[in-house]
Amino acid sequence: MITRFQSPRLLLIGGGAVARTAEVLAQLGFSRPLIVTDAFMVSSSMVDRVVAPLRAAGIEATIFADTVPDPTDTVIEAGVAVLRAGDYDCLIGFGGGSPMDTAKAMAILAAAPPGTHMREFKVPAQANRGALPVVCVPTTAGTGSEATRFTIITDTERDEKMLIAGLGALPTAAIVDYELTFSVPPRTTADTGIDSLTHALEAFVSKLATEESDEYALRAMRLIAPQLRTVYAEPGNAEARAAMMKGATLAGIAFSNASVALVHGMSRPMGAHFHVAHGLSNAMLLPAVTAFSLNAALPRYAEAARAMGVAGRDEGDQSAAAKLVEELQALNRELAVPSPAGYGIGAAQWEGLVPTMARQALASGSPGNNPRVPDAAEIEALYRAVYA
């Protein structure tokens, strides 16, 4: 049996790693970067953490800071215009998932003829070409985008979050520095933390899982699960921040190779229609979707519970899996994850879009990787179950 496994060419992981950005670029032969980030990273001077070491090495980087949460096709087109107007040899995605996804999508779109729309790369298409290599520097411990072959872009005309996959979206290198996460507020810490846990769990139970992806998924769960509450309550805890950051990257490698499943399939439409942050929408869905899927892959969910430390090594599968669902519910309570209703989404508005969201979830392909593959009616029932 032949297993395909994909990951960045270079990973630099550890506290203070961002100070070595210029060394990474030099090692890869790059010297003319376009930094893709957002306005907050500029106004807060966070972007200086990557600009300063470049400047010290004699590299003057240009900054594109128009990235928005849930990046859109229009922002990608604007970024590509900047890219084509300059003389750049790489992109640096600096920030959370949105700047990194934007940089990856820019590289893909820039490799296509002018006038090409981003939706032409939507799954099941394969986006295997990028105009320039991408180096990612995450500032949150969650999306894992620094290590994946995926990017998520909103089609503004159709109000749809598009999953785009291929080697063109796989970063050439990633610089993973947990010290960049100390200033991340508790709400974002919780949402991105549950996001990374979801990545690891879905990669482990995915129908596309392999022995190799399992190793990364299990290691990620062992790192993330014991530290989620700590990092939420103690933002300055270096040990917790380091574990979460490393775990998020390992989870990214896991789901980049095994793909995600039903939680992500249902999460993307929530983000597109209601602008719920991706990690938060995953958190809203995770307990209910796990309970729905449990009996279709009981040994896998039980093993995940053991890896997370919520069940004993010798505990039976049924008991261990039940404890997993209880733990996910407890995490949502203790990390103050609201329901869609608690988030402020009106019942009529939610109900009116349930059929559309279910259709878009199925069209993404992710539910097909789930241990229990749902039909549209079952997805609609899950949306209604999580609402309140």
Rank of each mutant, 00 (worst) to 15 (best):
L335I: 01
P185S: 10
I164E: 00
S281R: 10
E327V: 00
R187K: 15
V51D: 02
D48V: 11
A277M: 11
A81N: 10
L163F: 11
T356D: 12
L280Y: 00
K323I: 02
K323C: 05
A105G: 04
E351R: 13
A330S: 13
A358R: 08
V68T: 15
V24A: 00
P171W: 07
P235I: 03
T151W: 10
E211W: 09
L83C: 00
A81E: 13
N332H: 01
P53F: 02
M100C: 05
F5V: 00
A112V: 03
S213W: 07
R222L: 07
I194M: 13
G193N: 12
S319H: 08
L208E: 13
L298A: 05
V134P: 05
D38Y: 00
N370C: 11
F255D: 02
P299M: 02
G16N: 03
A363V: 02
R372S: 06
M46Q: 13
F150E: 11
E23L: 09
E234K: 13
I92Q: 03
N332S: 05
E326K: 14
L294I: 05
T148S: 10
G312N: 04
V18H: 15
P269I: 01
V137N: 03
R313S: 12
A347Y: 12
I345T: 12
S256Q: 03
R4V: 12
S364E: 07
I194C: 05
G93T: 02
V386N: 02
A209I: 07
I108K: 06
P133A: 00
Y383C: 06
R84Q: 04
F182G: 14
T181Q: 08
I59A: 09
N369K: 03
Q329K: 14
A225H: 09
L294W: 03
Y387R: 04
L362T: 04
S293K: 02
L228N: 06
L298C: 08
R222D: 09
F150Y: 15
A385W: 07
M245I: 04
D314G: 08
E234Q: 15
G115I: 06
R359Y: 09
L328M: 14
A307K: 11
Y232Q: 04
L324A: 12
Q329L: 09
Q318L: 09
H275R: 14
R9F: 13
F182K: 08
S31H: 15
F292C: 01
F274Q: 11
V134T: 02
N257I: 05
A291D: 06
A330M: 12
A225Y: 08
K161L: 04
K122P: 10
I153K: 08
D159Q: 12
A347G: 06
R229I: 13
R55H: 07
P113Q: 13
E212M: 14
G58K: 00
S43L: 10
V373F: 01
G16H: 07
S366W: 08
L335P: 00
T116K: 09
T37V: 08
K122E: 11
